[in-house]
Write a protein that binds this DNA or RNA. Structure first.
Lengths: 236, 236
DNA sequence: CCGCACAATATGTCTAGACATATTCATCTT
DNA sequence: AAGATGAATATGTCTAGACATATTGTGCGG
């Protein structure tokens, strides 16, 4: 495992910053100096510093130099897989059961969620994700049929719309929001829990070049799901 | 705004992948071909492809070539700021009130959370984050005093331990987990809500080179907090 | 037909230099 | 003292080539 030189330089500077040898706001040696220290070309150092800048550990300004970043916001990588993959990764059997399907003109509330005009054609699918036959999550999905007309031909009886959309409709942007809420009567009944109990809610919206394609709400009973994220070495 | 050439190449390939001109699993032209197409040095193309690989849009294998990635896991950037910043960003006044502080030997449960031996010195702080005087979140924090002995000298009466730790103790790794749960009697009382109502729970653990420094649990009443994340153009 | 060795190939790394560009600092003018 | 000007400097981009390295495909021998 011969480490590339630019990696070694990057790792060294990173360690030094972490150890406080270079403190937040402080200036690092310039590229020429570092190249001399490491006895290598300036571009090799530049690559190492570029990677550190990309990772947000340093800020670079022309003429001024390279400075250790001071950060307050932590950017975390959150991995969200589709529900089937989530369930299967815990070794349980996965199944989907459609509870409702309505192809219709968008009502005010639905139009707002998708960012389309009232009356635009939409598809609403409500379904239950099962793990070993037990309710795992309730999905309420709205699909903009103007953006994804092919969805109208799908029944979504035993396959969740999420998986189908992932393979059949392209998207450019997505947004996730995670909240907690109390189960209303209908939701509680569908999930087989008691009214008012805590739910973890994941809302996912996806866009294709500016137009919202689909908006989904996944409701997990407390304890059924956990979103985890790991992060390394921002520091500031 | 003269765009760097490597950026232009990157953007072009990205757009082509997004448009489906190059499909998942498909091979891209090799560096030499692309360099000829763009009439530039191979290294410039290499940089563009390197950036795409970094972003996860393509996978590169020596001798084989560069392939459009097929991804099932969505990696999302989640921004988590400290509670004070969260509250202030909504224009409300922030305050912290300590409810309890215990410096002691770790009990079994606490030792497990921090990954230390039972009986190791720990500091437990429970406090309330207030927004405009109203409870916004309850924080339960454990600090490993072997890893951060300086914390023992702090009272944490009006300042949250999170902010102090951020500025006084370095860390190399962190993990977040988001779940929902029902409020127990004591928690409900502290947050001024009713027992059993839904809570959004953020658990944060931070490590300094392998040793767990601190473990914290933030409990937000349903509706008080929302974790959002945006992502762009993975595709697979 | 299978496995093994070897050559071909595409990426990965690196260099030494060139020119571009943004920003700062010092100086000169008003 | 305030503002304009220009030189100095550090990063940013790019090139043309060299060698390293991993992997794959091919052909050879058993």
């Amino acid at each position: 495992m011969t480490q590339p030189l630019h990696e070694a330089i990057r790792a060294r500077l990173e360690a030094d910053i972490l150890a406080g040898i270079y403190k937040p706001g402080e200036k690092l040696p310039n590229e020429t100096q570092l190249a001399a220290e490491w006895n290598c070309a300036r571009m090799t150092v530049s690559r190492a510093l570029g990677a550190l800048a990309e990772a947000g550990m340093v800020q670079r300004r022309k003429r001024a130099g390279t400075f250790v970043a001071r950060r307050t916001v932590q950017e975390t990588v959150l991995e969200i897989r589709d529900v089937a993959a989530e369930v299967r990764s815990t070794g349980r059997e996965y199944a989907f059961r459609r509870l409702a399907r309505r192809e219709d003109a968008a009502r005010a509330e639905e139009a707002a969620a998708l960012g389309v005009a009232e009356g635009a054609p939409i598809l609403l699918v409500i379904g239950l994700h099962l793990a070993d036959g037990q309710p795992h999550a309730l999905e309420e999905r709205l699909i903009n049929l103007d953006a994804a007309p092919a969805a109208a031909r799908e029944r979504f009886e035993d396959d969740a719309p999420g998986a189908w959309l992932l393979t059949h409709v392209a998207w450019t942007e997505a947004e996730h929001a995670i909240t907690a809420l109390a189960a209303d009567g209908q939701t509680a009944k569908r999930l087989g829990i008691s009214t008012g109990s805590a739910l973890l809610c994941l809302e996912r919206k996806t866009w294709l070049s500016g137009a919202c394609v689909t908006s989904a709400r996944f409701l997990y009973p407390a304890g059924a799901q956990r979103f985890t994220a790991r992060l390394r070495q921002p520091r500031g």
